[in-house]
Amino acid sequence: MSVPLTTAATEPLAARAWPAAPGNAELDLAIGRTLASIDRNLRHFGADFPAPSSTQSVYPAIGNIEWTNGFWTGMLWLAYEVTGAARYREAAEGHVRSFHARQQERHNTNHHDLGFLYSLSCIAAHKLTGSEIAQEAAMGAARLLMERYQARAGIIQAWGDLNDPEQSGRMIIDCNLNLPLLYWAGEQSGDPSFKAAADSHIAAAARHIVRPDGSTFHTFFFDTATGAPRHGKTHQGYSDDSCWARGQAWGISGFPLVYRHNGDARLLDVAKVVANYYLNRLPEDGVSYWDLIFTSGPEERDSSAAAIAACGLLELARNLAQDDPLRAAYEQAAAGMVHVLSERYLITDGAPGSGLLKHAVYHKPNKIGIDECTIWGDYFYFEALVRMTRNWQPYW
């Protein structure tokens, strides 16, 4: 019998009345509004990218410098899949050339978010078009990500100088979404070290980032000399012992996405633990506050966490047995979130450069992007719509 990856118990899922799942007409309307927004922004940004978060709902234009740039390219690939329109493919292929140069020149690549950057841009391009330059760029990014693997701790360091004892040994829950880049690279190259590193990292996340009550630390530190676990800490949450909502959503999404690659069914059990904790702490409309310590009151919501969680719940549900009672519950919750986001959080008449989902939070402690749009929230909202309307194969 296999040893569980986490000692956390799965909370019983509280009863909740979700809105009815969106029908075909509602989903088509939401996709149409999303495409209209992408078209406005495609003309507005040209070869540039939206900044991570908006200012008064409009994204500043930036070059290919941020950890978030892949989300805009991912939206273009989703638009191409949905419509077949050449303008989306041509724009995304221009981005692919930029991403190829970025990894080749090591331009702002000294961090773990290479999966966010290259899965949604270059792996997507390779899967959809067979692009060799995209394949080469993604392989280069995977090799850069492997440089951050700390062998004794068995984790990929998030950011910071690998040789700085004050920064080394830090893993974060977000990195679950970066691991598919390594699994893809292992499959493409036949090199087992990519998969081994990803397997080690996800196991460490399950054991140390997931707390016994099913909540998560944002970050966790290890001693890189001995591999010993040290302590959990927040970076963007309310406090070290609270539960940052977007981090919990990364967990809901990341554990089942990794299961897709390595087939370890224990990851689905971990995902259930994390999902139930999140769902049991939502306010009336199903869109979380920026930290799950808040369930009511004047604190800001984070619509981006809801969009990520919806995608994660749909990925988790599709991997559960038909007779698993949580399968239908997760599908219902995801559909309810998408309905609420479409009805109450969607910007339908934005100016060029504006985002899709209002009322998101980037970094509350640092006072960045509070009650604004975030480009990852927009991406995951579109991904959720695509997941709900077709048998979509993830870029992750």
Results as ranks from 00 to 15, higher is better:
Ser239Phe: 03
Ala14His: 10
Tyr277Val: 07
Thr68Met: 07
Glu343His: 13
Arg106Tyr: 13
Gln103Phe: 09
Asp241Leu: 14
Trp376Thr: 04
Ala134Pro: 01
Ala228Tyr: 04
Asn391Ala: 14
Ile123Asn: 11
Ser37Lys: 11
Ala205Lys: 09
Thr389Met: 08
Leu13Gln: 01
Arg143Leu: 15
Phe71Val: 02
Leu314Asp: 10
Gly369Trp: 05
Asp161Ser: 08
Thr34Gln: 02
Gln167Trp: 04
Gln150Arg: 14
Gly140Pro: 06
Phe99Thr: 09
Tyr330Asn: 09
Ser193Cys: 10
Glu284Val: 12
Ala309Asn: 08
Asn163Tyr: 07
Ser239Cys: 02
Ile62Pro: 00
Asn319Ile: 00
Gln150His: 11
Val386Ser: 04
Ala335Asn: 03
Glu166Asn: 11
His95Gly: 03
Gly160Trp: 12
His261Ser: 12
Thr216Phe: 06
Ser54Met: 07
Ile65Met: 06
Tyr277Thr: 01
Ala204Glu: 14
Arg148Leu: 13
Leu76His: 11
Pro50Trp: 07
Gly23Phe: 02
Cys175His: 13
Leu179His: 01
Leu145Lys: 14
Asn391Val: 11
Trp392Leu: 03
Thr34Phe: 07
Arg89Glu: 14
Gly353Ala: 13
His231Gln: 11
Arg301Asn: 06
Gly377Leu: 01
Val386Gly: 05
His231Ile: 12
Ser253Asn: 14
Gln393Gly: 07
Phe380Val: 03
Ala137Tyr: 07
Gly70Arg: 02
Gly74Thr: 02
Asn64Tyr: 01
Asp241His: 15
Gly214Cys: 12
Phe294Ile: 11
Gly232Met: 02
Ser253Phe: 14
Val274His: 04
His208Leu: 05
Ser37Gln: 15
Leu257Glu: 15
Ala307His: 11
Ala305Ser: 09
Met1Thr: 15
Glu26Arg: 06
Ser296Phe: 12
Glu166Trp: 00
Gly377Ile: 01
Asn41Ser: 02
Ala21His: 01
Phe220Glu: 08
Ala61Asn: 08
His126Trp: 13
Ile172Val: 11
Tyr289Leu: 11
Gln167Cys: 08
Ala14Cys: 01
Ala141Glu: 07
Ile252Ala: 12
Tyr278Ala: 10
Asn108His: 10
Asp174Pro: 04
Gly190Cys: 04
Ala198Gln: 01
Leu279His: 03
His208Thr: 03
Ser342Ile: 13
Gly237Val: 02
Tyr88Trp: 07
Leu356Gly: 08
Ser131Cys: 10
Ala306Thr: 03
Ser53Glu: 13
Ser131Trp: 00
Tyr395Lys: 10
Leu282Gly: 00
Arg40Asp: 05
Arg246Asp: 06
Ala203Gln: 05
Phe222Tyr: 13
Pro229Thr: 11
Ser253His: 14
Val258Ser: 11
Asp378Trp: 04
Ile202Met: 07
